[in-house]
Measured scan of single mutants.
Amino acid sequence: TTYKLILNGKTLKGETTTEAVDAETAERVFKEYAKKNGVDGEWTYDDATKTFTSTE
């Protein structure tokens, strides 16, 4: 399943996707990605669109 991440950081904005077996796995991948890029925001998830959003 393809999951999408929308980053709305103070210094980094953008989108990326990952293939994962479930939302929990995708969330771990995306949170590590955000951390590596210095984004520490509030997380939301929309199951209908398989989209995570992190907003600082």
Rank of each mutant, 00 (worst) to 15 (best):
A34Q: 02
F52I: 00
G9Q: 04
F30E: 00
D22Q: 02
L12W: 15
F30W: 02
T25V: 07
E19C: 15
A20I: 02
G38T: 03
N37S: 09
A34K: 01
T44D: 09
D46Y: 03
L7P: 00
V21P: 15
T11W: 14
G38M: 06
F30N: 00
K50E: 02
T51Q: 03
T2D: 04
T49F: 04
G38A: 07
A23H: 10
N37Q: 13
K10F: 14
V39G: 03
W43N: 00
G14E: 14
T55P: 03
G9W: 15
K4R: 12
F30C: 02
A20M: 03
D47A: 14
D46Q: 04
E15V: 13
K36W: 08
F52D: 01
T49Y: 04
G38L: 05
K13T: 10
T16G: 04
T25E: 14
E19M: 14
T53A: 05
Y3S: 02
D22K: 03
R28E: 08
T11G: 11
I6C: 07
A48Y: 10
E24L: 12
E42A: 12
N8V: 13
T55Y: 09
E24V: 12
E56A: 06
D22Y: 03
Y3C: 02
L7M: 10
K36R: 13
K10V: 14
I6G: 01
G41M: 05
G14W: 15
G41R: 03
E32G: 04
T53H: 07
S54V: 15
E19W: 15
T18Q: 05
I6H: 04
A23S: 09
S54N: 11
K31W: 05
V29S: 05
V21E: 12
E27L: 15
N8R: 10
D40Q: 12
Y3H: 03
G9V: 05
D46A: 03
A34C: 14
R28I: 10
E27Q: 11
A23G: 04
R28L: 10
T55Q: 07
E32K: 06
A48P: 07
V21L: 13
L5N: 01
A34G: 02
F30S: 00
E24Q: 12
I6S: 03
Y3E: 02
T11Q: 11
T51A: 03
V39A: 06
R28N: 08
G38E: 05
D40P: 04
G9N: 05
K50A: 05
E19G: 04
L12E: 07
E56D: 07
V29N: 06
A34Y: 02
E42C: 12
E56H: 06
K31G: 02
T2R: 11
G41I: 05
R28Y: 07
W43F: 09
T49D: 04
E42T: 14
Y33A: 02
T2V: 14
T53L: 07
E32H: 06
A23Q: 12
G14A: 15
N8F: 10
F30V: 01
Y33H: 04
S54C: 15
T49P: 00
E56T: 07
K50C: 05
T55V: 09
K4T: 13
A20P: 01
T51W: 00
K13C: 14
V29G: 04
K36G: 06
R28T: 08
L5V: 03
Y45T: 00
V29C: 09
E32I: 08
T25F: 07
F30G: 00
T11V: 11
T51R: 02
